[in-house]
Nucleic acid binder design. Structure first.
Ligand code: MN
Ligand code: MN
Ligand code: MN
Ligand code: MN
Lengths: 147, 147
DNA sequence: AAAATAATGAAGCATAGGCTACATTTATTA
DNA sequence: TAATAAATGTAGCCTATGCTTCATTATTTT
């Protein structure tokens, strides 16, 4: 490839940076989304979300979970006081709901296509964070039609 | 949630750690996969893959791309010499092929379901890395049936 | 052939997200 | 109630990925 000036750099892959940039942005949100959903689950099940339980379910050590929750607090999604459980703000609870619904739809679509349920659950945990609103809408329409 | 000993911790979310762990592992591979595919593309198009072009397409600065390629070299997927382009080893080229094929199938499935092609391309860039072999197999079967 | 430009390299900084080790606090149990 | 166990907090370390800034090397242009 010959060296090139500012012009003439519109080779074919011109839209790639946007794609990769979006994937990076989605990934940056992934942990946040999984944590708020999990905290919401624990509160629904047990009335509270303890650091130890969060860490255990995510599969990390408790300091790692503590750090993640500190970030949620910084971002206004959660609150907590020393030696007490973690709670979600309204924003956090709303996000958890959206994430939960999206997760379910992704799994349902995979199953509808023929992916074994167990596999669908495994793969959806990572895939879900990259499903845009537009795609989610198409997924819903597909499931409605299939039903 | 009452404090608990080693026993009795088999609450419902017992399979969650595995799910999250797999998602983390897939994510760790994501950049590697995208880079090798891109390097393969550039070599096919221009006969060489330059750092500047790689960085531009991935949407990062050139030192970031350099660091990523250093890792590919460490992992035996690429090779390069100072001020020369980047090349793929046999292992790297094989990985690139697998990644390219998977990317195409993911896009095709999304489109078949009703996702607009442009959106499908965007979302697939992140989703693809979380599609397991089992799911890929189901995707292929679905596309065959649809056709 | 020199000068200017482009590409690459290398250093150093930041943040996210892992970990271990140890201190402190709370809850259970003896 | 004292002793033990569990949970939480805190400090410090590591790697991966980003970045900016500046030095060096190749390539083009004059
Ligand atoms: Mn997830
Ligand atoms: Mn999920
Ligand atoms: Mn990708
Ligand atoms: Mn791809």
């Amino acid at each position: 490839m010959p060296r090139q000036g500012k012009e003439g750099r519109k080779i074919d892959g011109a839209r790639l940076p946007e794609r990769f940039g979006r994937a990076r942005a989605a990934q940056a949100m992934a942990l946040t989304e999984d944590y708020v959903e999990l905290i919401s689950d624990l509160i629904a099940e047990f009335g509270e979300a303890r650091i130890a339980d969060i860490a255990q379910r995510v599969g990390v050590t408790h300091p790692t979970a503590t750090k993640a929750i500190a970030r949620l607090k910084r971002e206004g999604l959660a609150s907590s006081r020393p030696y007490r459980g973690v709670f979600l703000t309204d924003a956090g609870a709303a996000l958890a709901e959206r994430v939960r619904a999206r997760h379910r739809i992704v799994v349902d679509v995979l199953v509808a296509i023929g992916v074994p349920r167990e596999t669908a659950e495994l793969d959806a945990e990572g895939m879900e964070h990259h499903v845009s609103d537009a795609t989610l809408k198409a997924f819903k329409a597909y499931l409605r039609k299939k039903a």
